[in-house]
């Protein structure tokens, strides 16, 4: 129920932000639409931890800046690789072991790997991540281990 209320609040905030109209008529439409959307999500049974991950919200505040910094760092590295005249690439498939317990945690980890340039998750079997890297130096394990640790911390104890 808390999850439904949270989803409703987020949806309505989005409505207010994007519509830019604050007359009573439009507000009524907004309330009706958000209620309908939450009702449909409830009936479909999709209103769970994965569709409304509010329990991650406050820990994500610490994770997102680190991720953005990491993306920036890897971007500079990949840009250097592309601009070098001889194009020194060494593409490889590497495997990582993820320590997240929930599917949501694995999802966040896989997307973080893909979002960082130079590494793309191509497959997940259980805890085993198959990652394609532009050069082996970009996926030597140290950075991915750091990311793995942080995503596991993001996942937290409760789940």
């Amino acid at each position: 129920m808390i999850r439904a209320a949270g989803l409703w609040v987020v949806l309505f905030a989005l409505w207010l932000l994007l519509s830019g109209h604050y007359q009573p008529l439009f507000l009524t439409f907004g309330v009706a639409t958000c209620t309908l959307a939450v009702g449909v999500a409830y009936r479909m049974g999709t209103l769970d931890d994965e569709s409304a991950p509010f329990h991650l919200a406050w820990r994500a505040v610490a994770y997102v800046p680190w991720l953005v910094w990491d993306i920036l760092r890897c971007n500079v590295q990949v840009a250097r690789t592309i601009l070098s005249p001889k194009l020194r690439i060494d593409p490889a498939i590497v495997h990582f072991r993820a320590s997240q317990r929930t599917d949501l945690g694995k999802f966040v980890y896989a997307n973080s790997i893909t979002l960082t340039p130079g590494t793309v998750t191509t497959g997940i079997v259980g805890d085993d991540f198959e990652v394609h890297a532009l050069s082996k130096g970009l996926a030597d394990g140290s950075e991915e281990n750091e990311m793995n640790r942080r995503v596991t911390a993001l996942e937290g104890e409760a789940s």
Binding site: V78, I82, P117, V120
Partner: peptide
């Protein structure tokens, strides 16, 4: 490998 450039 092009996917990495697109990701950039």
């Amino acid at each position: 490998t092009r996917m990495h450039a697109a990701g950039m």
